[in-house]
Design a binder for these strands. Sequence first.
DNA 1: TAGATTGTTAATCGATTAACAATC
DNA 2: TAGATTGTTAATCGATTAACAATC
Lengths: 212, 212
Amino acid sequence: MASKKISMAVIKRLPRYHRYLNYLLELGIKRVSSKELSTRMGITASQIRQDLNCFGGFGQQGYGYNVESLYTEIGNILGINKTFNCIIVGAGNMGQALANYGNFEKRGFKIIGVFDVSPDIIGRKIKDLEVRSLNEIDDFVVLNKVDIAMLCVPYRETAALADRIAKLGVRGLWNFSPMDLKIPYDVIVENVHLSDSLMVLGYKLNDRFPRE
Amino acid sequence: MASKKISMAVIKRLPRYHRYLNYLLELGIKRVSSKELSTRMGITASQIRQDLNCFGGFGQQGYGYNVESLYTEIGNILGINKTFNCIIVGAGNMGQALANYGNFEKRGFKIIGVFDVSPDIIGRKIKDLEVRSLNEIDDFVVLNKVDIAMLCVPYRETAALADRIAKLGVRGLWNFSPMDLKIPYDVIVENVHLSDSLMVLGYKLNDRFPRE
DNA sequence: TAGATTGTTAATCGATTAACAATC
DNA sequence: TAGATTGTTAATCGATTAACAATC
C-alpha cells in the first residue's frame, strides 16, 4: 500500500466507489459491471475501469466485478482496516457532532479524546468520552500516539493550536476552520471548508437561477 | 452574472481567493500582484491571472490588483451581496453547529428556520430561532420562499426529505449525509461528505507514513 | 521614460474518454 | 463456443503553465 503515483482525482473518487459498493452489497447484488456502475454513479465505464486498474485487476473479463471483493479491496486501499487514533480539539457543536457521528469509527478512525478550554464543557461526557482540559493535550497526544487531530476550534485559535499539536508528532490534521494551515512540520492537512462549499452552492444557484 | 462557461475548477478556487484577499485587507495591504499572491497561496501566478480573467480585467499592468476592489469583485461573482433564505433540517449537533456558525450570514446565507422531529428539541431556541416541528416545514418553505435547505438529518431519512423539500420549490440542497442525492426536480445539490474527506486523509497518511 | 505586471495566446501537461484486443 | 466485459493502449479533451506583447 505504498506510494506509486496515483492522482488525487482518482483517490478522491475511491470513497464514493466504496459507498456505492456498500449500497449494492446491502441490496444483495453479487456482481456489477463497469457499465452498470457507470449508469448508477454517473461516471463513464471507462473511467471506472481506468480508476480501478490503478490498483490492480479486480475484475474478470466477461463477468465484471464481484461486489463484495471489490468493496473489500477499495476499503483496503483506503486503509479502513487499519486504525487511526484520533482526538477532537474543541468540543463545541461541531466537535460534538463529530464525536457523536458513529460512522468514523467503522472506518478505522477511533476517537480516543476530546478537548476543550471551557470549564463548562470540561468534564462533560460525550458518548463514553469525558471532555478533557486543553492543558492535558500535549501529554495525551504523546502518551496515546495520536495520529489525527480534528480541529474544531474558533478561527483565531486554529493556527497556533495546529502548530502546537503538529509539533507533538500528530501526523494528520482535519481542519474545520476557514483557513489554509501552514505548518513547518511533516503533517498532512485535510480541510473541510464549509463556507467555501456553501459559496460554491451560492454561485451555482445564481448561475442557474439568475435574479434581478 | 449569468452563465458563460466557467469551469468548476475555477469556481472552486474563488472562495479561496476571497479568503486570502480578506486576509490581506485585514493586514492593511492595498495592492497585490499575481506573483505575490502566488507565493502566499501556493498557486502559480499564471493560474491566478487566468482565473481572474474569466470574469474580466480586474488588474492593471505594471501595478497589480487593488486588494479591496478585487475582494469586492470576487464577492460579487460569488453572489455574497445577494441574500439566500436558508433553513436547517435536523437540529442535531451538526444542525446546531451550522445554526450557530455566524460566518454564513455574513456571506448572504440567512438562516430563517430550523426544523426537527424530536419533541425534546422542538421549541428550544438556537440563537434567535425556535426549533420548529418538521410538520410545519412544507408551509414554511412555500411561505418564506426558502432558497436553500441544509440537510442534517440521519442517513435513512435524507433521501425522502430531500425529495419532499425539493418538490416544494427549494432550489439548493446542502447535503451532509454520506449519499449522493438523486432528485427528479431542478435542484442544485452540494455535498459535504465528511467521511469521504476523512478517508482521503487516511489514504494520504497511510501513503506518506506507511505502517506494518 | 523604464520597470513592472497584466491580459492573453500558445505550449504543455494531465485527466477523461474511446476503442479494441485479450480472455473469462 | 459465442457473448460479455475487462484491462490497456491510443485519442481527445480540458486545465495548467509558460511566454510575451500590450500597457500602466
